[in-house]
Simulated scan of single mutants.
Amino acid sequence: MSNTPLDCLIVGAGPAGLTAATYLARFRRHVLLADAGASRARWIPASHNCPGFPFGVGGNELLARFRLQAQAYGVPEVHTRITQLARHADGFTASDGERHWQARTVILATGVIDRVPALEDIDEAIAAGTVRLCAVCDAYEARDEVIGVLAPAQAAIGHAAFLRTFSRQVCALASDGDAADPALRRRASDAGVQLWPAPQRLALVDGACQVYFADGRRLRLDTLYPALGAEVQSGLASALGATLDAEGAVVVDDHLQTSVPGLHAIGDVVSSLNQISVAVGHAAIAATTVHRRLPRNYC
Rank of each mutant, 00 (worst) to 15 (best):
S2K: 13
T4R: 15
C8W: 00
C8K: 01
I10T: 05
G12L: 06
A16D: 01
G17P: 05
G17S: 02
T19V: 04
A20Y: 00
Y23N: 01
F27W: 00
H30E: 03
V31D: 00
L32E: 07
D35P: 10
A36T: 04
G37D: 02
R40S: 10
I44K: 00
P45W: 09
S47T: 02
N49T: 02
N49L: 00
N49F: 01
G52D: 00
G56C: 06
G56A: 02
G58R: 03
G59C: 13
N60F: 00
L62G: 05
L63H: 09
A64G: 14
A70P: 01
G74I: 08
P76M: 11
H79T: 12
I82E: 06
R87M: 10
R87K: 15
D90M: 12
S95N: 11
E98G: 11
R99M: 14
H100G: 06
W101A: 11
V106F: 10
I107G: 07
L108M: 05
A109R: 12
V112M: 14
V116K: 14
D121V: 11
I122P: 09
E124G: 14
I126L: 15
T130A: 15
A135Q: 12
A135F: 10
V149L: 11
A153V: 08
Q154I: 08
A156K: 08
A161P: 08
F162L: 15
L163R: 06
R164L: 12
R164S: 12
T165P: 05
T165V: 13
S167I: 03
S167T: 11
V170A: 11
V170D: 07
C171M: 12
A172F: 11
L173G: 04
A174S: 14
S175A: 15
D176F: 09
G177P: 08
A179P: 03
A180T: 14
P182N: 04
P182H: 00
A183Q: 14
A183P: 05
L184S: 08
D190M: 13
L195P: 03
P197W: 10
P197N: 09
L202Q: 10
A203R: 13
L204C: 14
Q210V: 07
A214K: 13
R217W: 00
L219R: 14
L219K: 10
L221R: 04
D222G: 01
T223S: 06
L224M: 10
L224A: 10
Y225E: 04
A227D: 03
L228P: 06
V232F: 03
Q233E: 04
L236W: 03
L240M: 05
G241N: 05
A242L: 02
T243L: 14
L244Q: 12
L244S: 12
A246R: 13
A246M: 05
V252S: 02
V252M: 01
L256Q: 13
T258N: 07
S259N: 02
P261C: 02
G262Q: 00
G262Y: 02
H264T: 04
A265P: 04
A265C: 05
I266R: 01
V270H: 03
S272A: 10
Q275C: 07
V280N: 01
G281E: 04
H282L: 05
A286T: 05
T288G: 11
V290K: 03
R292G: 08
L294V: 12
P295C: 03
N297A: 14
N297C: 08
C299G: 06
C299K: 11
